[in-house]
Design a protein around this nucleic acid. Sequence first.
DNA 1: CAAATTTCAGCTTAACTGACATCC
DNA 2: CGGATGTCAGTTTAGCTGAAATTT
Lengths: 150, 150
Amino acid sequence: MAEAKAEAERSGRGRPTLLYATKRLELAIRARLEEMLQGSGVTALQYTALTVLAVREGVTAAQLARDSFVTPQAMADMLRVMERSELIDRRPNPTNGRERLVSITDRGRAVVETHAQAARELERRMTADWSPRDVEAFHGALESSWRALR
Amino acid sequence: MAEAKAEAERSGRGRPTLLYATKRLELAIRARLEEMLQGSGVTALQYTALTVLAVREGVTAAQLARDSFVTPQAMADMLRVMERSELIDRRPNPTNGRERLVSITDRGRAVVETHAQAARELERRMTADWSPRDVEAFHGALESSWRALR
DNA sequence: CAAATTTCAGCTTAACTGACATCC
DNA sequence: CGGATGTCAGTTTAGCTGAAATTT
């Protein structure tokens, strides 16, 4: 057990692992997002999904599930709720009968825009005092490590 | 709605937001951690908590909850399960009767060590081809943005 | 047939809110 | 007393597994 402690010391004076540091940041973001969305009728998870769908038209639930590392069932659950709230709609793919393509609705877009200002503020708060280079590097690092785990 | 799309374009050709990029990475890490822990009897969440407790002796549940941005009740739930599995124990603080200090047990430490190799491999995979500088910068960025949201 | 997408059903876990006792 | 800690009870949500229908 002394070894575990020594290992931790060697790897940076008790600095949390990359794995934990990522989780911790995600939890903090979720907490702040939920504050921001108080009373809006959408959850932090739904809002995050909407920001993705706002720039990604006509994608299948299965593809979204793969991108997000959740099961198709979990994604279907979320989409069903969002469809009921008319934040998204799903239409059969004309060129592939079994697929249903997901799109954001005008109402979904309105939700995103209503909170866009606050969301940008949140990101700005996270990256206050960083250079544009640093922000760019952080973006790149998050994306690159995500891709490495696919 | 054309504005939302234009905004997205301007901010980087449909690049996901920092908020989503972080969540997506966290989900990917969790999925890989759970593969790694198959059959070990601990969840990804418990394992991550154990790695923290391995380098942080004698802390209260309330403090852990604050650090992790979860409610005290959620933390209590998790600790109760881990105590039952004898991964941690809790003893009254001699200098403060109401507090119960959490410590990792030898068994908890053994779990961490059993998977330390695989966890390091996971982190290495995330940061393959990065310079030590880049890894350090990523660590710093995760911690700094977490701190900015507290 | 094999593979992929979607859906249904049932379940477990992780979180929440609210209330309350306890202790400095 | 006020503030923090811890716990109990009940609920909700998010995720899972397993199984089946459908289509390419």
